[in-house]
Design a protein around this nucleic acid. Structure first.
Lengths: 272, 272
DNA sequence: CAGTGGTCTAGACCACGTA
DNA sequence: ACGTGGTCTAGACCACTGT
């Protein structure tokens, strides 16, 4: 662990001294501290027991205030890397590698992060009036239209997932214009100023329908792992409502949660 | 929204004045503020547009510092209730009802929260040397033993899930002593000072084996929704490694994540 | 340009664990 | 009794959004 430690005089003046350090915290101090601590943890510093220094000690080491250290530690906490308890030093919990948000939202980025080649084969793309459920999810008015896209997604040529995405007009218009061989729609949309910042995911099992079976080459009625996702932009406006159906054995979803951070929940599967 | 607003003089002196207010924030100020704001949001205050007051305004209303308000808002943010963007007021994102951590970890509490009667039928409970995977997960040494429990869980009498839990000796000794009709092991363990504070979950599909089929009454080889979970106590010591297999159509798992809070990830299903 | 949330500081007191 | 993290305050400046 380092980050040119000590040197309490290096307060704020020389911020971003080595402008080369791209990605190393992208600006805010606490991110830099968090990144450094994350590396120290995964590297295995802090010894076998994995006891971190006290907040005050870290503050002095990095030449920042305790508040900033706490902000950094909160990041690691929510990633499930360290514990936190009143009265005791923090302890290393695990070395979990948490993907970035974009890696999770974009099949393409996910594929690359595993060293696989992502592919997308467009099955259909239609524009039609939104039904009740779609209006509800995308916050549309009666009579508004939606774009519905169905794509087969592949990893290095192997069929893995069927993607059924419903876009509101503003977004759908852009996607509909794309050549069918564009793999990452997410990237294109980002270039058009459509940002994905928040998502709600629901994961369950569903039986393959005729289209699923045809595209994935599985048995009709066979089990698929379904991830439904509603994504919104920074203003809270829905930009996508998607249903991804994975062949068994191709993916697993992971979550970390704790008494402090609880974003996961379990539901009865009644309503759709 | 209220919380006896105004009254800037009520700084810290009368804290916990009405000790009756159980659960209404359980002590810390920011939890009280968060609880109040959460209610205001779900009640539908803040109008149709759902724009929250500025942080400074809220601070004045509640008679607390801006820092405390921000702490409260961070809770709502991570629950996916509100957005947050520099330059703009916060906006209501959704009315998601997020279960408490204990509701997620305990089948019993989950059942009650849905108004169903939880049940547990013990299938087997054995003590034996831990294999390599179990030692890895529970951080045990070669030669250490584990307790392995298999239970059928029911909701109002209907089979729903098979629970396969591996306990380290310290915990297993307690569970093994319990009468077979004890429904909530989590509750009992809590009374014995075994605390569950952090968990890592992995969700995927698995085929039912002979035991699963016998207990759940499904076809052998039929699809089940599997949730694997490793739970640790506040010191980071593993206390449970469990594998729950649900009949299709009985549950779904939900997560909210955002650019800020990303605890969910997607994995290739290679290594077990 | 004014308003808003994001970041950071410096200091204070408290509740909890541990020795 | 002491060290540790949890909470809270008061004030400061900056980066961004909107008008």
């Amino acid at each position: 662990m380092a980050l040119e430690s000590g040197r309490p005089e290096a307060r704020s003046a020389d911020a971003s001294a080595g402008a080369s350090g791209t990605e190393r915290g992208s600006g805010s101090l606490y991110r830099k501290v968090a990144a450094d601590l994350r590396e120290a943890i995964t590297t295995g510093a802090f010894g076998e027991a994995g006891r971190l220094p006290a907040e005050g000690a870290l503050a002095e080491q990095y030449g920042v205030s305790r508040g900033t250290v706490r902000q950094a530690l909160a990041v690691l906490r929510s990633d499930g890397l360290v514990t936190s308890r009143r009265g005791t030093r923090r302890v290393v919990l695990g070395t979990a590698r948490v993907q970035s948000f974009s890696e999770l939202l974009s099949f393409t980025r996910w594929a690359y992060s595993m060293g696989e080649e992502p592919g997308g084969i467009l099955d259909s793309m239609v524009r039609r009036p939104a039904d009740a459920a779609e209006r509800e999810q995308l916050r549309l008015e009666e009579g508004d239209e939606v774009y519905v896209m169905v794509r087969l997604r592949t990893l290095s040529g192997t069929p893995v997932m069927v993607e059924r995405t419903v876009y509101p007009p503003r977004v759908g218009e852009i996607v509909a214009e794309l050549p069918p061989d564009v793999v990452s729609h997410t990237e294109v949309l980002r270039e058009h100023g459509i940002l994905f910042t928040d998502a709600d995911h629901t994961i369950d099992i569903v039986a393959a329908n005729g289209d699923d079976a045809r595209l994935l080459g599985c048995r009709r009625g066979g089990p698929l792992l379904r991830e439904r996702r509603r994504t919104t932009d920074p203003t809270g406006t829905p930009v996508e409502w998607s249903q991804d159906r994975y062949l068994p054995g191709t993916v697993a979803f992971s979550v970390h949660n704790s008494l402090a951070t609880s974003a996961l929940s379990r539901h009865a599967r009644d309503l759709d």
